[in-house]
């Protein structure tokens, strides 16, 4: 997701403008000039200025490009080829899956699926991925549920100590 400075800078200008506009519409505290509107407006102004400077390419001489890695890609990144940046969406997607599934499936099953998918995407062998998916969730459950008393969902498969 290498975006050009024009795109990111332009986005910041829009975001700043929105913050400035939305901030200016906030209700004031009666009898006072300075209220909740001031800070977002100052930030909005600053963001617009920075965004414009970034679009114009000011300050680019301070940046150093990252070196391209030389090793071979593995797992999902290799399979995706040129579109490998899409593999980055796996972790947030897994977190979304946790939000949606944890209450029905329970922590252990959700955790099993998450670790399995993440490990396979990173290029683990099936044996390693399954072993991690079976071993890791119970250990984490034990630490958070037993030691820290976090109410983790039971769902379809409850841990024996729950």
């Amino acid at each position: 997701m290498h975006l050009s400075d024009r795109v990111t800078g332009g986005f910041l200008v829009l975001l700043g403008a929105f913050a400035f506009w939305a901030g200016s519409r906030l209700p004031a505290v009666p009898g006072q000039d300075v209220g909740p509107a001031v800070f977002p407006m100052v930030i909005g102004g600053g963001l617009m200025l920075c965004g414009a400077l970034i679009v114009l390419g000011v300050g680019r001489s301070f940046e150093e490009p990252d070196p391209e890695p030389t090793e071979a890609h593995a797992g999902l990144a290799r399979w995706l080829g040129k579109r490998r940046v899409l593999a980055a969406l796996v972790p947030p997607a897994l977190l979304l899956f946790y939000v949606l599934a944890a209450d029905t499936l329970g922590f252990l099953l959700t955790g099993f699926a998450m670790v399995l998918i993440a490990a396979l995407s990173l290029g683990a062998t099936l044996r390693l991925a399954v072993a991690m998916a079976i071993a890791a969730p119970p250990v984490i459950h034990l630490v958070f549920y037993k030691l820290l008393r976090v109410p983790l969902p039971e769902g379809l498969l409850a841990a024996p100590w729950a």
């Binding site: 939000v99 991690m132 969730p137």
Partner: peptide
């Protein structure tokens, strides 16, 4: 191997952030 460490981190991120307020 990274493929064994990183998946566990994802799961800890989920549980850890859930634990701070018990909300999804």
């Amino acid at each position: 191997p990274r493929a064994a460490v990183m998946p566990v981190i994802v799961l800890i991120c989920a549980v850890g952030s859930f634990a701070t307020g018990n909300n999804l």
